[in-house]
């Protein structure tokens, strides 16, 4: 819940409706990741997976900025949407997004406030783990893919990290200010 609100019973009807209207921002992290998933289906027809995995970065960044609004179960649901959008076996991105969110929360709990360099190093580790995980889980789903072409996406995703951080930071500032939402 954002800010301090009096008990529900004490709110006037217009205050209640104002309260509900103010809750839209709780959906900002999820909606922004959905937008990034949509961007990843751009009509860029290339034979190698060269497009950065913006949605994974979005999940990671929001799990660092607002851990309360990007829990692993939400990351899992967003991953299922990504699986449907990208024609992947159902559960591939779901599992990996949930793991990414859990890793980011764990690292945030140990590290404290997000710091640029540490987060970028963690993101590199996470993207590397994601590509290896995708390769292994595709094998589990019975659709083996070669590992080497995934290196393209690894490089572009690492390069795109500052852009996604900047995008999410703008949304964070406009929606939540500097505070955490629990």
């Amino acid at each position: 819940m954002i800010g301090d609100t009096p008990p529900w019973r004490l709110l006037a009807p217009d205050e209640r409706s104002r309260y509900w209207r103010s809750q839209w921002r709780l959906g900002v992290p999820g909606l922004s990741v959905l937008l990034l998933i949509f961007l990843m289906t751009a009509p860029l027809l290339v034979p190698v997976p060269v497009f950065p995995h913006l949605a994974l970065l979005g999940v990671f960044v929001w799990a660092s900025f607002q851990p309360g609004l990007m829990p692993p179960w939400l990351a899992f649901a967003l991953g299922l949407v990504a699986d449907l959008a990208f024609a992947q076996p159902l559960g591939l991105d779901g599992t990996l997004f949930a793991l990414a969110a859990a890793t980011a929360r764990l690292a945030g709990a140990r590290q404290g406030q997000p710091s640029g360099l540490f987060d970028w190093r963690l993101a590199i580790f996470l993207v590397l783990g994601f590509e290896l995980g995708a390769w292994a889980l595709m094998d589990l789903a019975g659709r083996s893919v070669p590992l080497l072409p995934l290196a393209w996406q690894l490089l572009t995703t690492i390069a795109a990290y500052p852009l996604v951080v900047a995008f999410c930071a703008v949304l964070q500032r406009r929606s939540f200010g500097r505070g955490l939402v629990r």
């Binding site: 829990p71 692993p72 899992f76 019975g142």
Partner: peptide
């Protein structure tokens, strides 16, 4: 509770992948 839910969704994801192996045209 968070740890239990995280474990549950990851287990669900892995089960879904096994389903995808058996039935690639599912969903």
């Amino acid at each position: 509770i968070g740890a239990v839910v995280t474990g549950a969704v990851i287990a669900t994801g892995l089960i879904l992948l096994l389903f995808a192996r058996v039935n690639p045209t599912g969903a």
